[in-house]
Simulated scan of single mutants.
Amino acid sequence: MSLPIVIADDSLLARKVLTKALPQDWDVDIAYASNGVEALELYRAGKASVMFLDLTMPDMTGFQVLEALQHEDLNTFVIVVSADVQPMAQARVRTLGAIAFVAKPVTPEAVLPILKEYGLYV
């Protein structure tokens, strides 16, 4: 059974780059969100066992998505993928429940160790 994942980023190019950075043999069903509202809708629909989340998006930021997930008893693995590499941003996403922070542009070398550490990819 495929693992449902969400890639949430307002940039089509960033979504494509992230998709290519995932392991080719990883059995996943990918859903895409172009903003935080869509990401939450997909999460609520059960399509986000793992969520790759950008911080800067229209309608609802990644920080706001994390806060909403926290209020709804977060039960998804959230990996923040952002160009905002400031230590304060990284610390804040960890506090809000993200399991990891990956700087853009994302690479397979950055994603794979995180997936393995949490048993999401063997």
Results as ranks from 00 to 15, higher is better:
95 T>Q: 14
96 L>C: 07
53 L>T: 01
60 M>D: 11
96 L>M: 05
79 I>V: 11
60 M>V: 11
76 T>C: 14
78 V>N: 07
49 S>A: 13
58 P>S: 11
71 H>K: 12
71 H>R: 09
81 V>D: 08
55 L>G: 10
96 L>Y: 00
59 D>M: 07
85 V>I: 05
54 D>K: 01
70 Q>A: 14
91 A>R: 10
50 V>W: 07
56 T>D: 09
93 V>W: 07
83 A>H: 02
72 E>M: 06
85 V>Y: 05
74 L>W: 04
53 L>S: 04
56 T>H: 07
65 V>M: 04
71 H>G: 11
96 L>W: 06
90 Q>F: 12
53 L>Q: 08
78 V>C: 14
52 F>A: 01
58 P>Q: 00
74 L>F: 15
65 V>H: 08
93 V>G: 12
71 H>W: 05
93 V>M: 03
51 M>I: 02
89 A>I: 04
91 A>T: 09
59 D>P: 04
83 A>G: 13
63 F>R: 04
62 G>V: 07
77 F>V: 08
86 Q>P: 08
85 V>T: 13
53 L>M: 01
70 Q>T: 11
93 V>A: 09
93 V>S: 05
66 L>Y: 03
63 F>C: 09
63 F>Y: 05
57 M>F: 06
81 V>S: 03
49 S>I: 08
96 L>R: 00
52 F>T: 00
82 S>M: 00
90 Q>E: 05
55 L>K: 06
93 V>D: 11
68 A>Q: 00
86 Q>N: 10
60 M>E: 12
56 T>I: 02
50 V>H: 02
68 A>R: 06
83 A>K: 01
61 T>V: 13
74 L>G: 15
87 P>I: 15
88 M>I: 15
86 Q>G: 07
74 L>P: 14
64 Q>C: 10
51 M>E: 02
85 V>H: 01
50 V>M: 05
75 N>K: 07
67 E>W: 09
49 S>Y: 02
74 L>K: 14
54 D>L: 01
51 M>W: 04
87 P>Q: 13
93 V>N: 03
68 A>E: 09
82 S>K: 00
51 M>L: 05
71 H>F: 14
63 F>I: 13
74 L>C: 13
60 M>Y: 13
69 L>P: 09
92 R>D: 12
88 M>Y: 05
68 A>H: 09
79 I>C: 08
67 E>N: 13
53 L>D: 01
81 V>T: 08
70 Q>K: 10
59 D>S: 06
59 D>C: 08
92 R>F: 15
52 F>Q: 02
87 P>K: 14
91 A>Q: 12
94 R>Q: 10
81 V>H: 02
87 P>A: 14
61 T>S: 14
73 D>I: 12
73 D>E: 04
92 R>T: 15
84 D>M: 06
94 R>A: 13
94 R>Y: 07
76 T>F: 09
64 Q>P: 00
72 E>Y: 03
75 N>D: 11
52 F>G: 03
79 I>N: 07
73 D>R: 11
96 L>N: 04
67 E>Q: 15
49 S>V: 14
78 V>F: 04
56 T>M: 13
86 Q>F: 11
54 D>N: 06
90 Q>S: 05
86 Q>K: 08
50 V>C: 14
76 T>L: 10
66 L>M: 06
93 V>R: 00
52 F>H: 00
86 Q>I: 03
51 M>C: 03
60 M>K: 11
55 L>V: 05
52 F>E: 01
83 A>E: 12
76 T>H: 07
53 L>K: 00
96 L>H: 03
64 Q>E: 10
51 M>A: 03
79 I>K: 09
